[in-house]
């Protein structure tokens, strides 16, 4: 099949970018979307033009590296699918396909379709963990966790950190991403000791990164390749409200005896 691509090209973070029209010829409908780009890149290279830069790694839908807003939808038209698992059979012969990077101030473009998502790492560093040293924790089965809680926590834990929620949101808000981690740990007993400080710190960091605000349109949920529910955002809101009243400002440490 043949397709006409409209691709965002931008040399580096400082350069000005623009949409460029590139023809994709003789594409197998069984190839994945990224394999289509590979094929197009080979053609570009043979013509002496620089290939299109895009993020990808595992190509099996789990690492979260691949991105791309395809015809206005993050990860393309298929529900619950990452770009790397999207196949060309989802498109029509002769179709025009717009390919753009995630658009957010907090995700600056590095090149073409590649963006910098370190803001997500910094949000996790603000509190997305359980403070436990490596050593000799108690036997794993000393901490029974009700199956339904474990399952619910898991539903949030499947987040791959791709950023589609931000890309889909009209306000470029990462609430679903932040909520997934907050919710996972709020549901598990291991997360309880830092329950309040975690949600406050992560929300605070989210604001500092320059993301937008949630307006409950749920585009994130619809775009999420892992189908994470906005119910987790509600849980984060509850957690935040609760923590706002409970959490006191941290006191200065003392050195002991």
């Amino acid at each position: 099949m043949d397709v006409t691509l409209h691709v965002w090209r931008q040399k580096n973070a400082k350069a000005k970018g623009a949409m460029e029209v590139i023809e994709g010829k003789d594409i197998s409908e069984h190839s994945s979307f990224l394999e289509m780009l590979d094929t197009v890149n080979e053609t570009l290279l043979s013509k002496g033009q620089e290939p299109i830069a895009f993020d990808h790694d595992c190509r099996e839908g789990i690492c979260g590296a691949c991105s791309l807003v395809i015809n206005g939808e993050p990860h393309g038209p298929e529900y619950g699918t990452t770009t790397c698992q999207l196949h060309m059979r989802s498109f029509k012969n002769g179709q025009h396909i717009f390919i753009e990077p995630w658009r957010a101030k907090a995700f600056p473009v590095i090149r073409d379709l590649v963006v910098d998502r370190e803001a997500f790492d910094r949000i996790q560093q603000a509190g997305g963990f359980v403070s436990v040293n490596v050593g000799s924790p108690q036997d794993a089965n000393c901490l029974p966790i009700a199956k339904q809680d474990a399952d619910k926590a898991f539903d949030a834990a499947v987040c791959i950190g791709c950023g589609a929620c931000v890309a889909a949101c009209k306000n470029a808000s990462p609430m679903l991403f932040v909520a997934a981690k907050v919710s996972q740990l709020a549901l598990l007993p291991q997360g309880q000791p830092e329950r309040e400080s975690r949600v406050l710190a992560m929300v605070d960091q989210m604001k500092k990164e320059g993301f937008g605000n949630c307006s409950n349109q749920y585009e994130c949920e619809a775009a999420c390749p892992k189908e994470i529910s906005v119910e987790h955002i509600a849980r984060m809101n509850r957690e935040y409200l609760r923590a706002s009243f409970l959490e006191e400002a941290p006191k200065a440490g003392h050195g002991g005896d």
Partner: peptide
């Protein structure tokens, strides 16, 4: 704030379900 969070708009805007 929301407008500032996405300084460059999409060339091809779409809405999934909102």
């Amino acid at each position: 704030e929301n407008k500032a969070a996405r300084p460059v708009p999409y060339a091809h805007e779409a809405t999934i379900q909102a």
